Computed example of a mutant assay.
Amino acid sequence: MAEFTRYVAMGDSFTEGVGDPDPQRPGGLRGWSDLVAEQLASRTPEFRYANLAIRGRLLDAIVDEQLGPALDMAPDLVTIYAGGNDMMRPKFDVDRLVGRYDDAVAQLTATGATVLVWTAYDAGWSPVFGKLRGRNAVYNELVREVADRHGATLVDFWRFDEYDDHRMWDWDRLHMSSLGHRNMAARVLGVLGVEHALEPVSLGTLAPQPKSEARRENLVWAREFLLPWISRRVRGTSSGDGVTAKRPVLAPVG
């Protein structure tokens, strides 16, 4: 069973932990990567962890801002999830995007570290994000090629059917909920072949939602998430403006 001592997490809000609030933690967030780090730390006293992820970051910014610091830390485990924010932009050059991703993954795997990459989630059921299904599928095939080419380990989010349940998602329908983050942490540890103590997520049967309640939730979502999100796109701003990495250097967990 693999033992890791230096874990660096790279990416955007997915890895920062948005959707899993915890005011006692750096940045006020927990998230799947913190949970993974805690389980790994419980096995290895000298374990150290850094999380460079910042919400809203496009893939170019993730590579430009996070790759160098990650390499300098000489990790033996790296997770990198990038491209999700790019795919929601009107203009999207998937070949150029994945070309940069390919170069970053090549540099990371060349160090001998175990490198985990993700496919995008299949949100085909979503009236809004489902419209991106085609470009997500193309991106996923290219990411699979990147993983194969460089010996990276793939976390195939596209095939995680349990995320078809809305309880796995936060109120904004874009970020995972606390349950979703815990489930992702268990999935990652499973991919790594690491035994863990995380309780499995058990959702039970989902009760039918009255149409009136669904309409009310849709209106609240449109007002409080969708319209501000569109406004940021128009203004060229990001939810990550002014946000810094919550764990910028390798340090003990806790």
Rank of each mutant, 00 (worst) to 15 (best):
F4A: 08
F4M: 07
F4G: 10
F4S: 10
V8R: 05
A9V: 15
M10Q: 10
G11T: 10
G11H: 10
D12S: 15
D12W: 01
S13R: 04
F14R: 04
G17E: 04
V18K: 02
L29W: 03
V36C: 07
V36D: 10
A41S: 13
R48C: 00
Y49K: 00
R57Q: 14
V63Q: 06
E65G: 08
E65M: 06
M73C: 03
P75W: 05
M87K: 00
M87G: 05
M88C: 11
P90C: 04
K91Q: 14
R96T: 12
V98C: 02
D102G: 09
V105S: 10
A110T: 09
T111I: 07
A113I: 07
A113C: 08
A113W: 08
L116I: 12
V117I: 15
V117G: 05
V117T: 13
W118P: 11
A120W: 00
A123L: 14
G130W: 06
G134L: 11
G134K: 14
N136V: 13
L142T: 03
E145I: 08
V146N: 06
D148M: 05
R149I: 03
H150W: 14
T153G: 08
F157V: 15
R159I: 03
E162R: 15
E162K: 12
M168A: 03
S177N: 04
L179I: 01
N183W: 11
A185H: 08
V191A: 03
V191M: 02
G193K: 05
V201W: 12
S202E: 15
T205D: 13
A207P: 10
Q209L: 15
P210N: 05
E217G: 02
E217H: 09
N218H: 01
N218F: 01
V220D: 02
A222Q: 03
L226A: 14
L226Y: 06
L227K: 12
I230A: 12
S231T: 13
R232C: 00
V234I: 15
R235I: 01
G236S: 09
S239K: 04
S239D: 15
G242S: 06
L250A: 09
A251I: 02
V253S: 07
G254N: 12
G254T: 12
G254H: 10
